[in-house]
Each structure stands twice: as C-alpha cells, then as structure tokens.
Nucleic acid binder design. Sequence first.
DNA 1: CTGAAAGCGCTAACAG
DNA 2: CTGTTAGCGCTTTCAG
Lengths: 353, 353
Amino acid sequence: MTSLSIRSGQSASGGPRRATMRDVAALAGVGIKTVSRVVNGERDVSEATAARVRRAAEELDFVPDLRAGSLRRNGRRTDTIGLLVSSVENPFPAAVHRAVEDEFRPRGLAVLASSVDDDPEIERARVATLLGRRVDGIILAPAPGSQEYLHAEQERGLPLVCVDRKPFGIEADTVMSDNKAGAAVAAAHLITHGHRRIAVFGHRKSLQTAQQRKAGFLEEAGSAGIAAAQLSIVEDLRGPEQAEAAAASIFASLVPPTAVFCSQNLVTVGVLRALRKLNAHRTTALVSFDDLDFGELLEPGLTAVAQDPHAIGALAAQRLLARLDGEEAEPLTTIVPTRLIARGSGEIPPPST
Amino acid sequence: MTSLSIRSGQSASGGPRRATMRDVAALAGVGIKTVSRVVNGERDVSEATAARVRRAAEELDFVPDLRAGSLRRNGRRTDTIGLLVSSVENPFPAAVHRAVEDEFRPRGLAVLASSVDDDPEIERARVATLLGRRVDGIILAPAPGSQEYLHAEQERGLPLVCVDRKPFGIEADTVMSDNKAGAAVAAAHLITHGHRRIAVFGHRKSLQTAQQRKAGFLEEAGSAGIAAAQLSIVEDLRGPEQAEAAAASIFASLVPPTAVFCSQNLVTVGVLRALRKLNAHRTTALVSFDDLDFGELLEPGLTAVAQDPHAIGALAAQRLLARLDGEEAEPLTTIVPTRLIARGSGEIPPPST
DNA sequence: CTGAAAGCGCTAACAG
DNA sequence: CTGTTAGCGCTTTCAG
C-alpha cells in the first residue's frame, strides 16, 4: 500500500508530482497553448489533435490549476466568492449558505464560508483572508459596528452584498427580512386574540434586527392603544439562558403578562423553558420571531413569524451575480416578506378572569 | 457617491487597480524582495526600512495575493482546505463545519465548503472543483458508492480525512460516531424498560450509518432474547414524510409495538408526527439516534442517542493538520462515543395490559 | 489551425 | 541587510 515512490516534492507527501499543462503538451506532442485551447474549450483546434490532447490529459490525471489561470486571465477572476455569516452552524445562516451555494454552482463558483460571531474585529480579519485569496465578491451578514473599511474595496470594484442586515457606513446591495412588518403582524395577532398585558423579549440590542423587530411590535401595539409603558420589555438577551432567567422572573410575578413576543429563536427557546417550568406554557400565548426547526412538534405548536432564509440567500447570490456581470446601478435593498405560521401557541386566549 | 474614476481594469468595475508588491516597493523606495520580507515577517530587515515599507503598504491598501504567493512558495500551499458534506444546511454537518473552521483558523486555513447531497456524482464534481483550486487537503463525508477515484490523489500526497462514515475502496483517516454501540445502548434502554415489541425505523439503507445502527440494535436485542423476526423493521426511509407514513401504518395495527427506535433525526420527526396524530406519543416509548435541536422542549422530552459533531469536526481537522505536517502513519480510524440522553420519551413503560 | 514569447504577482535562490 | 534574476502554471498576444 504505502509504496514510497520517488519523492520529488518538498513536503512529506509522496507520489509523482501533479501533471502540468506542459506535461500534457509533451505527451500529446503539441504546444502548450494548444492544450490550453482544448482544456478551455476554445474552438479552432482540429478534432484530431484535440482528441490526442484529451487522451494525454486523461492519462496524466491532469487538473488545470485555477490559481495560475486566474492570475493571468482577463478579469483575474478566481471563481470563488466569500460568505461571512454569524455562524455557519446556526440554522438561519446555514440555510442562506445552502441557497447561495445552489445559486452559484451552475456558474462554477465555489464559496469560502466563515463565521464571524457578530464580532466586528473578527469580521475584518475574515474579510482580509478573503481579499488575500482574491475572491470575486463577498456576501456578508454585517456584524455590529461600521463596514466603512470596505468602501475602498467597493471602489476598487469588489462586489459586496449584505444579507440579514444593512451595512453601516457604506452602501451595498442588501437582502433582508421585513423585520418591522413581521413583528407588527405578531403584535396584531396577539392583540386580536385579546391580549393587552404582553411581554416583549428582545435579542442582542446592537443588532439591527432586534431594533427593527422591537420597533415594529411597539408601533403596532401603540396604534392598538397599548403604550410601551404597559408592556414588559426586556432587551439585549444574549442566549437561551439569559432569556430563561428573564422570563422566569417576569412570569413569576403576581400579575404576569398573558402573552409573550420573542424576537429571536434562541430567546424563544429560553422563554419556552421558563414557561414550562412554571407550567404556564399552555396558558400563556407566545409568538416567536424566527421559527424553530420542528415547531409543529411542540405542545402547543409554536406560532412563529417565519423568515425565508433560502429566498434571502438566493436573492443575495443573484444580486452578486448581476454585479459580477457588470451591473452598475445604485445599491438595491430587497425586502423579503415573512409569514406568520399559527400552530397553537399564539392563539391561546388570555385567562377569562 | 458613484464617482466614475478612471477605468483601467477590464470588467465593468471601476476604481484604481489593486496595489501590488511592486507598487509598494516603488513607493517605499526599496526592492520588491524587501517588501516580500516585511510582509512575510522574515527578519533581517532593518526596522527603519521595515517601517517605510509598512507605511507604503498601508497607504496603498496593499493586500498580498495569496494565489501568486502559493504558486511559487515551497510546498505550493494554498492554505485552503475543502469540506464536503451531505448538506451545509443540516445541523449535523453544519456543526462539523463550525468545529473544523475553529480548528483551522489559528493556522490561517480557510475552508471551501460544499454540499454533496449524498450523491456520488456530485461528490466527484465537487472534488474536481477543489482540486482545481489546489486545496491543501479535503475533509469528506463520503457519499454512497466508491471513493476509489481518490486513490491517485492520495498517492500524489493529498491529505484526505473522512467524517461520519468510512470511505469505500480506499483507506483514509476517518472520524465517526460509534453507531453500533450507540444503537445497542438504545436497544438496551428500551428493553430494560420492559419493551419487547419494538419497531425499528431505519434511514437510507445505502448509508453505512443506517446499516451500523440497525446492526447494533438487532444484536443487542438478540442477546436479550428478542429475535429480529419479532421486531417491526422498516428500512430505507428517505425523509420525514416516508417515516410518518410507515409509522402511521405500523402503529395503527391491532397490536402495535410498545416502543420505537429511530435511526436518524429526520426519521424521528416523521415518527413523532405520526404518533401525535394517533395520540400515542405519551404511551409509546421512543428513542432517537441523533438528537433534535430542542428535544427537551417536546412532551415527553425526547430520549436520544446524541452524537458529538463538534468533536468529530475538531478531531478530523486535527487529523488533517497532522497529515499536512507530514505525518506518515497508517490511516487511523477514530471512533467518537455517543451519549444517551434520557428525557422522558424513552422511559415510558409498556402498557400494563 | 498552431506555437513561441511575454508576463500575471509573488517567492526561491543567489548574489552583493 | 538588500536587490537581482529566474520561474511557479497558466493565459495573453502575436506571429506563423
């Protein structure tokens, strides 16, 4: 198995070195440029020589080096784009990732994906990594803080599309959910079902999505005659644990809210845990912004304002492709609608005290 | 805003072209090699010139071109690795992805991630894409079918590490869950709780994990005196819908099983739906291989054999790093233990008829 | 239809 | 300590 053939390479790895175009040319008895023509499907090569070249390439397991090619090729394209999200592991960004991938694949574009953890410094570092690899464009879920540092790159012609939130300090194509409207729908839903004493649990305050969802909810509540002061509002919850603690304290009070709105899925998880411990989950209405993966399996089923991450990813990728193809229009913001899915938790009426 | 400065480039994008090392050298008044030294942190450059170079680089927004560098550098490393999983969107691969990323980041390695949808042809196409970009190594969740086509690449020195399942037709470092043992634990758990009439729902048969989990379960059942013939076994379920249909039919029978084992999370989801529709979810014991994201929120809580995707990803990445560093040992298979999490559904006793 | 020469941006190998 | 020359593997340009 481990036959130690001649080492010509530098590192510890063995085997013959990878064939180059020159090798193929030599074996086929043609010039290197002819190989290039065949490999790139340029015409004006006689079928006879083309066949010889293909056989030689096959024989040698030739795989053209895209690095070298892109270095000289018109446009210097690497056919690689960068995707920067909060975490490749979270369901929302992961779905965006998949949609982006599917949109790019037919064009032969590969994607360098990386997690930023909503940290501005990490974002800059990851961007640097992408620029060094000369990606053709970047799809970015902006972290809190400014993206102004990207302005020079945009001027230099780097296509940039933002997803989930708008960038700060620059302009760029952006594809995002209709956070405000979605939250307003959630508010209207709870109010319609008779609730007026409502708790609002918000996620990380520095994120635009948190601000917009809160604003959307409060506005709708306000126009229904419920002032912000009448609501129990908790903000800046960083995860399920914090959300659970906050909910535990609020719902243990003497006159607890009859309904909750959670602005993000992780917050929802925490709140659900708290409600279950208090055995209040069947009597307290709950609407979640962001669906949970199997929200229909909960009891009651989770009523959620669902986003459409696939649509967001696909639209962002299409925007990037358009820019790559030379579109010069003003930056465009695309708002993707949300959808309220009523499955039970949001339709619980207030106690008929 | 959209100031159309001088176009020197080729594509539609404007702006001054990106600075090269030569530009930096010229501005700093030094040779290009000196810039190279400073940029790469080689010593033997006077602090004075180094400072001048750095200032010039800063001034020009210089970002070294890693493509060009890697083309000539010893080892020709691109500092990029490929990750091929069933889908970047599924929770399990997504968690592996994150762990891999975290392990590579400190070394400056970027990751090209791509979905293969468990299709052998797609796998080959994605591998080709990676080879063309000259990745330093590949982490692969093998699709059904043979990976023999990778043998030549391995000989040529391409480090390959498999995750989740073993490759077929070649040998390679592999990191995977202890499927058999995990399934055996599930069987023992149900049997201990008094069940003998058990349904076994398996996922896609061509996947190793399905075979191993089924085998592990049956063996354990066998040694407890339960023959396979006494079990209701359904195999090759491709998704929640199929699983739901299968479960609906089996549990509607006159003498339904008192317990279920599901070999994969998507199967679990389908079975749970079916049980709920039959209102049998509180009386039928269920153990799932693969946890659901919020299994603790179900009622009863989901008893699951949980895998450790982060550990799998991290270990796979470490294996790859070791190979990149020249380790020449025989391919190593690392088995990651699973953990049974009892949350209620698996502890339901059989009806005391 | 085909090939030789130049050069992409950088690093290796040598000079000074 | 610093610079010059070649050359990575490919595409361009321009001659045959």
